[in-house]
Design a protein around this nucleic acid. Sequence first.
DNA 1: TTGGAATGTCAACAAGGCTGTCCTAAGATG
DNA 2: CATCTTAGGACAGCCTTGTTGACATTCCAA
Lengths: 165, 165
Amino acid sequence: MSDPTSSDTLLFLTDEQLRQGIEAMFFAYRGFTADPDRILATMAYGRAHHRALHFIARAPGTTVTNLLSILGVTKQSLNRVLRSLIEDELVEARVGAADKRERNLYLTTKGAALERKLSDAQRTRMRAAYRAAGPQAVAGFRTVLEAMMDGELRRRYQALKEGGA
Amino acid sequence: MSDPTSSDTLLFLTDEQLRQGIEAMFFAYRGFTADPDRILATMAYGRAHHRALHFIARAPGTTVTNLLSILGVTKQSLNRVLRSLIEDELVEARVGAADKRERNLYLTTKGAALERKLSDAQRTRMRAAYRAAGPQAVAGFRTVLEAMMDGELRRRYQALKEGGA
DNA sequence: TTGGAATGTCAACAAGGCTGTCCTAAGATG
DNA sequence: CATCTTAGGACAGCCTTGTTGACATTCCAA
């Protein structure tokens, strides 16, 4: 069939297909977070700490406000997490040079070590999944995920992608 | 290059690629849950209620134990959610016919209406993402997600997929 | 210089995970 | 029958991580 709107061509858009996709996201996300969660459970930390460590590692010197908009939580929520990371000397908050209201965030050696441990666990699973699926599937995976993001988040994601390449 | 282990062929497995995949999962999952979350926020319900409604709709008559293992939470956690859904007459728990210890769970008309409203919101986004990405990307998306699941969850997912087709 | 906007902190509360314990009812097994 | 196991419910209390509200500090512009 050459008609791009034929039911055959659009079989992947049936409600049943969409529901399978939704359930796949649900179950896969559980796998995605399982390994770091297991490590975090042995300490007094949770997923929120992992996310903060990840993005500070990704963009050293980032400000609280910037982190806030990436994580999509309230600053009060982030502050609690940040406070414990700073107390435990995993993160250092330096008063901004230009604007003293800002805090520039950096990982300490200890913080970088934990971040690497968590990342490694997550990357190992990701690598296994990528390897099993193959490059073409991975490209499709990325394409669909990007299309699923909210506009604002997609822009943040793209910015991170280009900045970190 | 014909060597399948060459760095060129495996470019998609670099740490940078894996990190982009990890961040894509993070941002996409936020989009994935955003629409139902917005609806739920206007009521006294949360994501946990949505998940229960979804899987009861998917497998009417399912038992509490079965739901428990699909959702991967403790019975105390699920019970709290289920209790409020039953009180509000969104879910009905019938005593099992064969085994009277079991409770078979069903959506009421009211419950089915809310479930549909939540599903529709989520499916609409999914459909847009699928349409934008195309069938080949969708196939790859599904392949990677399945590879990312834990073994136990993958089996549960497959069972749902076949049962509901 | 003064008022508003922006950055970040502290306090208190709610949702939804968790563990632990105890309980009833009902099936399974000696 | 007596006992063990399984399904489910209830209650207490904990932790993480979201939320709002109030507040201090700092910068900037009228």
